Amino acid sequence: MKWFQTVTLGLSMLIATGCASTADKQQWFYPPMAVPLQASMQQEVQIARLSQLLLRTNLSDELRAKMLYERGNYYDSVGLRDLARLDYGQSLKLNPAQSELFNLLGVYYTQIGEFDAAYEAFDSTLDLNPENSYAVRNRAIALYYGDRIDLALEDMEAHFAEDSSDPFRALWLYLIKLEKEPQVARQDLLKLYQQRDNDWGWVLVALTLGEVSEEQTFKAIFAGTRDNTVLAQRLTEAYFYLGKRYQYEGDFASAISMYKLAISFNVFEYVEHRYSFLELSRIFNQVKAEQLAKAKLEQAKQE
């Protein structure tokens, strides 16, 4: 609870200064950083232990499926996602009735851009457990990245309605709605921000809306915690959503820098880390398409 209290203190400082003029703000010459997270001894020991146990031939299918799922989770937590996917797949073959495992696979498929496989995985999760709200959110994000905005909006609105005080639900609803009604999206998010509580995520909402400066945001993050793990998590989130803002504004160079920073802290379990890779691919494809279109236009003029 100690770190939560310090985060709340930092948030209060941020809200108090949120309306201040930023005309004379100092620029950050070096990006605020944390020490990148490393695999813990416990994680490595658990992977080795489960690997040894899985060599046994007398395991029941149910127990083997559970152990493969657990090892997959450990692989995923240290960034070995392909190994995690292999374990998840083997686990599902032994026990297909694992709703949360399908949810994890859906996130994995979203990250690598295999959206049809992601939709199927999330649908399987919800078939097995219709009450899994996070599968609805994750499917909405997959639909968003798959350019199925209307369906994404439908899912995210349902997810948001379950807890309208959650800043992260509000942020993702805003990002999706931004594709259809930018002005309405901003007005709706601003209205929610004005009714905020002291949840950390509202700092990210303020940053996204431009209600506070980058400097104020990072000062609040550093005032909120001295724990490196929490700091890495907060910076991962901040750089991702700042990247989204820059990307929407067309500042691809800054967006790329922010996504790379979000990746750098090794917070593998956060969607902001996972989807930073996807955002970098989207920017690359967009810039490449624009360059090809420009080259074709110039060639047509010469002919």
Results as ranks from 00 to 15, higher is better:
I15W: 15
A135M: 06
D116Q: 13
G10P: 08
L143W: 00
A65F: 12
I263P: 14
L192A: 06
A161R: 13
K244T: 02
V78L: 06
L207W: 01
H273P: 03
S281H: 10
Q183S: 13
L209Y: 03
F277P: 02
S60V: 14
A117V: 07
D123A: 15
Y145Q: 02
F284E: 11
L207P: 14
L83Q: 14
S257A: 13
T110N: 10
S91I: 04
E211L: 12
Y108A: 09
F268N: 15
Q183E: 15
N198G: 11
R274D: 04
L59Y: 11
K219T: 03
D163C: 07
A16K: 13
L278A: 09
A48C: 08
T110I: 11
R186S: 00
S12C: 15
R282M: 11
G146P: 12
E303Y: 09
I263A: 08
H273W: 15
E70M: 14
E290W: 01
L126D: 01
I256L: 05
M13R: 14
S60Q: 05
S213N: 05
F265R: 07
S254T: 13
A121C: 14
L278I: 12
A140D: 00
W202K: 10
A253R: 09
F218K: 05
Y174Q: 01
T208Y: 04
A135F: 05
D199M: 02
P167C: 01
Q216H: 06
L80C: 14
S51M: 04
F222R: 14
N103A: 05
R234G: 07
A39S: 09
E290T: 09
Q216F: 07
L37D: 04
K301S: 01
A293M: 08
I112F: 06
D197K: 14
Q52G: 13
A142E: 05
F252Y: 15
S264C: 04
A34I: 05
K177Y: 00
A84D: 02
Y30T: 05
Q90G: 13
W3F: 10
T22A: 14
N285A: 05
E290K: 11
